[in-house]
């Protein structure tokens, strides 16, 4: 079986389970939408949003709801110990990691498809003016965040206090990704759009993605063997 086919097999299985239960999608979406609405009440006065708030709120909603999705995605594998069945299967462990990562990225993409228009509407943020750059920032930021998160969620799957430990470990490591996402998006939302700055932050995000995914692929097998 090819490496790519294995990745797709794992992702497809995760998406099929999610399509049946809709558990992660609904909880993550509900949390993300609630966050945006609460922030909208705090930061929008008389129909005008606080300057530069939209980018931060968008990325906070993505990061927090992403943490929720990561925890649940691996909790599901823990309940029937199916992660052990995957570990004993004759598939490359990096393919297992990438399959889980792709599933989480697609799930977060579905959440972003709802909250990006919502943020745009609530904060009068022109997120679609430079749609391709916005899309690039969201894709690169989500991959970077999920790359670290997938590794940590897998590592913590047997830890008793995994729900507490996941954000404690995840946020400090992914701060560069969140900062790059916020600054890049801000550059697109300010009165005078700063395209070179947005591209610079996008390049930084791609760099973080390459570093994080490489490190995760390198460490996934040893950390999961025990």
């Amino acid at each position: 079986m090819t490496f790519v086919r294995t990745i797709w097999l794992i992702t497809r299985k995760d998406l099929l389970i999610e399509a049946r239960s809709k558990e992660i999608l609904f909880t993550t979406l509900f949390f993300a939408v609630s966050s945006v609405l609460v922030f909208a009440f705090g930061f929008v006065r008389e129909g005008r949003a606080v300057e530069d708030a939209a980018a931060g709120i968008l990325w906070i909603a993505i990061a927090f709801s992403g943490t929720l999705a990561l925890g649940r995605a691996f909790e599901r594998e823990r309940q029937s110990e199916t992660l052990r069945a995957l570990m004993i299967a004759p598939i490359p462990r990096p393919a297992l990691y990438l399959g889980k990562l792709l599933g989480i990225v697609l799930l977060l993409a579905a959440v972003e498809a709802i909250i990006v228009p919502l943020v745009s509407l609530m904060f009068q943020a022109p997120l679609f003016t430079h749609a391709w750059l916005t899309l690039g920032l969201l894709a690169a930021g989500t991959i970077g965040f999920a790359a670290v998160g997938t590794l940590f969620a897998a590592m913590l799957v047997r830890a008793r206090s995994r729900d507490v430990l996941l954000p404690v470990l995840l946020y400090p490591i992914t701060i560069p990704v969140i900062i790059a996402g916020v600054r890049g998006t801000s550059a697109l939302l300010q009165a005078e759009v700063d395209l070179p700055m947005a591209r610079l932050w996008l390049s930084m995000l791609v760099f973080f993605d390459v570093v994080f995914v490489t490190l995760a692929l390198w460490t996934f097998e040893p950390v999961m063997t025990e």
Binding site: K13, L16, I17, Q79, S80, E81, T82, R84, A85
Partner: peptide
């Protein structure tokens, strides 16, 4: 075959 069954209940 483990003590836990290694099957996905949703499927």
């Amino acid at each position: 075959l483990g003590h836990d069954l290694y099957i996905y209940p949703e499927l």
